Amino acid sequence: MTFPLRTAPPAPLPGPQVLTEAEWTARRDHHHATVDELLAGHVARRAAGRSHPVHDFLFTYYSLRPNQLRRWHPGYGTVLLGASAVRDYRDHPGYERVAVDGVAGVRVAREVLDRRADTVDFVARLLAATASRAPQLGCFGLHEWAMVYRAGADGVRHAAVPLRLGHTGTDAVVESMQLRCTHYDAFRFFTPAAAPRNAEALTRDEQIRTEQPGCLHAGMDLYKWCYKMLPLTDSALTVRCLRHAAAARELDMRASPYDLEDYGYSPIRIETAAGRAQYVREQSALTRRAAALRQELVNRCTALQAHRTTAPENTGG
Rank of each mutant, 00 (worst) to 15 (best):
L202P: 10
L126A: 05
L13E: 14
T233E: 10
H183S: 09
Y61K: 04
A195C: 08
T119F: 03
P53V: 07
H30Q: 15
W24Y: 10
L216A: 11
P66F: 01
T170R: 11
H167W: 02
H30K: 13
T302Q: 15
A85M: 06
A247H: 02
A285H: 05
T170C: 06
S176I: 05
G155H: 03
L126K: 03
G214H: 01
A48E: 14
V161S: 04
G317K: 06
V161Q: 12
R209Q: 15
A246K: 08
A218Y: 14
R180A: 09
D118C: 02
M1Q: 12
G75I: 11
R6H: 14
R269E: 14
V108M: 10
D118Y: 06
G317P: 05
G75L: 10
E211L: 09
R6F: 14
W24M: 12
R276Q: 11
E211W: 05
Q207T: 09
Y95L: 05
T20D: 15
V103H: 10
S132T: 03
A83G: 02
R209Y: 05
T2F: 11
T34M: 12
G102H: 10
P162A: 03
P231Y: 01
R27H: 13
T170M: 13
G105E: 12
V79A: 14
D205R: 01
M220L: 14
G105F: 12
A124E: 02
T315I: 04
I208Q: 06
L127D: 02
M1K: 09
A291N: 01
A40N: 07
R65N: 01
Q212I: 00
R70M: 09
Y227A: 07
R133P: 02
Q207D: 08
E296L: 12
L251W: 09
D29T: 04
D114Q: 07
A194L: 13
E175I: 00
R115P: 00
A47R: 15
A117M: 04
L202S: 06
V161Y: 11
G166P: 04
V148F: 10
P162I: 02
R157Q: 12
R45N: 11
I270R: 12
Q17N: 04
A151P: 03
V280R: 11
P12Y: 05
E96T: 03
T238W: 07
A117L: 08
A131P: 00
E313L: 12
W72P: 00
G152H: 06
A303M: 11
L304Y: 11
A83H: 13
V54H: 09
T310N: 05
A311M: 10
L216P: 03
A277G: 03
C241G: 09
A160I: 00
H92S: 08
V173Q: 07
M229H: 05
E144A: 13
A172L: 09
P74S: 14
A201T: 04
V174C: 14
T25H: 09
L251I: 05
L216D: 07
F140A: 06
C215P: 02
Y258D: 08
V35Q: 04
P162R: 00
